[in-house]
Design a protein around this nucleic acid. Structure first.
Lengths: 338, 338
DNA sequence: TTGTACGCGTTATCAT
DNA sequence: ATGATAACGCGTACAA
């Protein structure tokens, strides 16, 4: 019964109606008699008819799709952002496609170009490099773009970000308040803007508090992952006791959780032997064995707001670009509170 | 300079060549003189030309896309599976789009239909209900489908799964080996096949070990999340000491981590006061403060194998459907080892 | 290199 | 209410 790739024509023929009627059944069912409509629908089922979105889009000029190009699909922070976007997309009756750039510029570029060629309604992206030319080019060519979780020097699109410098500052001010006199910053690579900003805010706060530069120890990691957090923990343990920091601020919660686990597994206690502050406040942070103090970003809101902006650009001719900056917030928990 | 939606025609005109030549520049650049080619390319840049994937696809009949419809994009297990798929997609030079059904049949159906209409090369899916008619229908209409992490009674597509009944059994046999005489199963909703199978395997193993049915306590949860794991922990604490299980097997690691955290936060010790076994062996499991014993599924392999199968179905006329079942493996860690 | 038929659904027009 | 027909959107492939 089923025919590979039945078209509207085939359906019309099978149902004994004209092509226009089939189209009406699909797009304006109220104009068709109950009886003929059900006959057409039966024919569609019999033939296994599937509307060809390409042909449709070609005619209509736009798709019903939004896309989010994620920096790291395995980091809960980004999937939470995606959830915020998804809610907004659903409300607008669009489907959301998630693409993972996996922190690689090449893959990101391929996704961007592919999406652009698909004529998606808009692209949300947490880019490897927010100042990349390609972003600007794609925006200029006409696809609405919103950069999520980064601001950018480049014009041509909206950005929705959280003030990472401030976040770094909040973390360190908290540690200073707790009386720490030597701390570590754990994070990397510094090519990731979020990491660099958090570091800069942290260091500035440290110096502003009158602490010494040499008491701000930087432990650079290859990637902001749990595994690297554990590795950083091993390096910390290796330091002579006198030079060992009493607290660590990690560029994200994955690093913090790795560090926390490594520290506890060697019998040291948190926060007595080492206080830890993370960043992002992912669900796993509060659920850690020693609940993690973390800098919270409004991640779902970040996504939702970004989606709003991209839809506005897609639909509102009066749209003007804007840079939204949310304020992070420190959530103090047991990992720093004696 | 940039014109909204310049087409090959516009480019041809601007470059002073024919439409066919532009097409050649795009698809068979070697057939075009260096000189005209660069002239055409310059025109493309000037006009901001973007290839229209719809028109292309319409002509070629297929897309360069693979899609994975995930049951829960926020569960690390599924993002790990997605990573496995992504590697395979990349090797085949296809882009992978991730869609999140968020465990809702309606959303899943919309994604499926949309993807089908897009004529994606294949759909990988961890379905809400592997026996749903829609899956079979989509497969019958011609889109290659592979069901991931579930087997199905329905014919018409390949499945790649892990033996969840066996997984449940391994978990409980381990607990029996450790001498536990009363255990809890934490999981739900039971409408999720994975949950039901793990429960069934667990219970069967318990009875097979000669333990009593009433010593197998079921704590049903609303969702397999960290928050629900914590809630289950509170219910456990509420049981009178004599009737309280000494071990818990959780339907996934999220539940286990929640339970672990709640237990420790009330000063009880793991595994002395409560032994815990999780399921999936996500990265966070080993990184928990008390490293979690868990049933490991080969999640990246699961994804990679599924991608292979869907590509085989898409490209090999001799393709025959197959049901692949991987074997899970218990990874014993401190959360059960005294 | 060029010209042109083609893929397929949408929409409009005129006729029945 | 439905039929018949054609123009359209745009890139591709192939004959000339």
């Amino acid at each position: 019964m089923t025919v590979r790739g039945a078209s509207v024509k085939d359906v019309a023929q099978a149902a004994g109606v004209s092509l226009g009627t089939v189209s009406n059944v699909l797009n304006r069912p109220e104009r068709v008699t109950e009886k003929t409509r059900s006959r057409v629908e039966q024919a569609m089922r019999d033939l296994g008819f599937v509307r060809n979105e390409s042909a449709r889009q070609l005619r209509l000029g736009k798709s019903r799709t939004l896309a989010y190009v994620m920096l790291d699909a395995r980091n809960p922070f980004f999937t939470d952002v995606a959830a915020g976007i998804d809610d907004a997309a659903e409300a607008a009756e669009l489907s959301l496609f998630l693409c993972n750039s996996d922190n690689r510029a090449r893959k990101e570029a391929e996704h961007l170009e592919h999406l652009e060629q698909q004529r998606v309604q808009g692209i949300l992206i947490t880019p490897v490099d927010p100042n990349s030319e390609l972003l600007e080019t794609v925006a200029r060519r006409g696809t609405p773009i919103v950069v999520v979780d980064r601001s950018s020097n480049v014009a041509g699109f909206c950005t929705v970000a959280v003030d990472d410098v401030l976040g770094g500052r909040l973390a360190v001010e908290h540690l200073v308040d707790q009386g720490h006199e030597r701390i570590a910053f754990v994070g990397g690579p510094f090519g990731i803007g979020q990491v660099a900003d958090r570091h800069d805010g942290a260091k500035a706060a440290w110096l502003a508090a009158g602490r010494r530069e040499e008491d701000f120890v930087v432990l650079a990691t290859d990637a902001p992952t749990v595994a690297d957090g554990r590795a950083a923990g091993e390096r910390l343990s290796g330091l002579p006791k006198g030079r060992r920091p009493t607290a660590a601020f990690c560029a994200n919660d994955l690093l913090a959780l790795g560090l926390l686990q490594q520290t506890m597994s060697t019998g040291r206690r948190i926060p007595d032997d080492l206080a830890i502050v993370g960043y992002d406040d992912i669900d796993f942070a509060a659920a850690a064995a020693v609940p993690l103090t973390s800098v919270r970003q409004p991640r779902q809101q970040l996504g939702a707001r970004a989606a709003e902006l991209v839809l506005d650009e897609a639909n509102n001719p009066q749209h003007t670009h804007q840079q939204v900056v949310f304020t992070p917030e420190l959530v103090a928990r047991a990992s720093t509170l004696g």
